[in-house]
Structure formats: C-alpha cells, structure tokens
Amino acid sequence: MKWNGKQTALEAPVTVLEFLQQQGYNAQRVAVERNGEIIRRADFEKELLRDEDTVEVVGFVGGG
C-alpha cells in the first residue's frame, strides 16, 4: 500500500480504524483519503485498506 507517499507492506486488508491505531493516530484528529476519495469517520470501522490502495492520512494538532 502507498501510505503518505511511501510503500508500506500490508499483508492482509485492515480497517481504517485498525490501521490508524497501529500507526499511533488519534482517529478523531485525522482526515483520511483512499484513492482520491475522503473516508468518513463513521466508516472507519468498516472501510478496508488493501495493499493496492493509495492512502493519505493527515493528522491535525490544536491551535489556530
């Protein structure tokens, strides 16, 4: 899987939520795009990431 521009080995499909947790993201503070389409937070538990996907994860921090 291509994740934030880097090739990342993905042995089996994982849910978005599982992937975010594995990578140490707070799921309430991210935007996730898969193959050019935004994935809604409500779907993080059911939408799967597969090895052929291109995924962008943007984590946000507070302040503005």
Binding site: N26, Q28, R29, V30, A31, I38, R41, V61, G62, G64
Partner: peptide, 10 residues
C-alpha cells in the same frame, strides 16, 4: 481544536 479541524475537512 484538532477535532474540529478534522470534522470540517471531512
């Protein structure tokens, strides 16, 4: 707030 930023973006 980071959570609000994420909500707006989504």
């Amino acid at each position: 707030k980071a959570e609000e930023k994420a909500m707006l973006l989504e």
